[in-house]
């Protein structure tokens, strides 16, 4: 149940981040900061595992900092957000206390998606 809630929140924050990046003129840092601030202030008040959910949404806010060259479509961003949610949820003991931990997990999830995407894109291009 908890993991489903985490995934829903991760997707919601991913969608919000994608929308903010596409529809506003906010910089990537501003978008990520706002998403982090809202997650950190709101989620711990409403959920028993609120702090974990805030960590997940913060990591997702780093995912949405990806450029549109890397993640072009909404579904791509959401897939990476989902991977990131699961990595943070199941990787709570990873790099504990090290600054940049969430960013590292966000980058790992982005690369899990981007590397095969680029690889298969190149393969398709070669076949043509």
């Amino acid at each position: 149940m908890s993991v489903l809630l985490a995934m829903s929140l991760g997707l919601l924050w991913g969608f919000a981040g994608y929308t903010l990046r596409k529809r506003t003129k906010l910089s990537v840092v501003a978008v990520s900061s706002w998403l982090t601030l809202v997650a950190a202030l709101v989620l711990p008040r409403f959920f028993h595992e609120g702090y974990l959910f805030a960590l997940i949404c913060t990591a997702v806010s780093y995912v949405v900092m990806s450029s549109s060259n890397r993640l072009e479509k909404l579904w791509e961003t959401l897939v990476v957000c989902l991977i990131c949610t699961l990595l943070v949820y199941f990787g709570q003991d990873v790099l504990v206390g090290i600054g940049g931990r969430l960013g590292t997990l966000a980058a790992l999830s982005a690369l899990i998606f981007i590397v095969p995407k680029v690889h298969f894109g190149l393969l398709k291009a070669r076949r043509r």
Partner: peptide
């Protein structure tokens, strides 16, 4: 390096922290 990959800043930060730790 890894231009446009979300989480790149955090990864660089973690590298710096790991080196110092």
């Amino acid at each position: 390096t890894w231009n446009g990959v979300g989480g790149r800043l955090g990864t660089i930060a973690a590298a710096a922290v790991l080196v110092v730790v």
